[in-house]
Design a protein around this nucleic acid. Sequence first.
DNA 1: TATTGTTATACTCTATAACTATA
DNA 2: TATAGTTATAGAGTATAACAATA
Lengths: 157, 157
Amino acid sequence: MVTQKPGTDDSRAAASRTDPLTLEVVELIGSVVARYYEEYEVAAGKHALTGAQARVLGLLSLEPMPMRRIAQKLKCEPSNVTGIVDRLEARGLVERRPDPADRRVKLAAPTEEGLDTARSLRESLDFAREPLGELSREERVSLRGLLQRMLGQGGAP
Amino acid sequence: MVTQKPGTDDSRAAASRTDPLTLEVVELIGSVVARYYEEYEVAAGKHALTGAQARVLGLLSLEPMPMRRIAQKLKCEPSNVTGIVDRLEARGLVERRPDPADRRVKLAAPTEEGLDTARSLRESLDFAREPLGELSREERVSLRGLLQRMLGQGGAP
DNA sequence: TATTGTTATACTCTATAACTATA
DNA sequence: TATAGTTATAGAGTATAACAATA
């Protein structure tokens, strides 16, 4: 962990924090993240939704789920979900249904209008992510591999 | 560069919204963004800072600046910056100085402790971004090029 | 007893509008 | 008049703690 012997994971990780190339890539990732978030908020705003509301609606459009699970997905406290779903429900985009299997549980599910909004939102977001259109097929394959490696989903180096 | 027959920008962009490869890459970018944000919040939290406070402190650690300019950098209203800097100032991490050139302006600048915190925060963040350590030098060069292209900073396709 | 969802409370971030002190 | 920063206000997201209904 202390001394650097070229080739070990430690030395490579340590070098990656300081060499100019890596810092440059880190900056670029920061830029991508900032742009992604910004365009996400704009897309949500076009539907008069906050970021959190758009995330929950997108989640429910894939599959209705108990309040508790929404909180887990959002990595927030369950008490917060109450308010977010309240506001989506007040707009007629989501409804609460009883769970036949457990009367403690309330299942949040999108309405028809909610599904439409989620679809429209998803298309806006895909469009927002369009910078990928700048890349050729080969480049996208390459980028996919690199991102998988970064996320620890790829094979061994 | 484009494998498909129709090589116009429009057709390429349209295809990029629907083909499985691109959707996969879009998903991966989403994962990177989520992880980046999550680890950023955790790193800030370790210093008992909110995300917004950490961003402002990081900004000021590079260069003191007027309140107005902080708002521009954060893309928020100037009135919000007052509170964020108030809280950083109450913690002794930032101070407000008069601008000799314009008595309306207040320059926000980090204190010594603020600089230390910013440095420590930056190191946490670099560590958070460490998945890059998984990539070889060649792969990082490749990733840099792809991200630059995505952000429209690279040369023409 | 444990779990689900909610309420109550407090804090932060956010935008809008009005105010002050300079320019 | 115009600009920089602030205050006041209101809405939204967040965590914590306490609660009712159900398991």
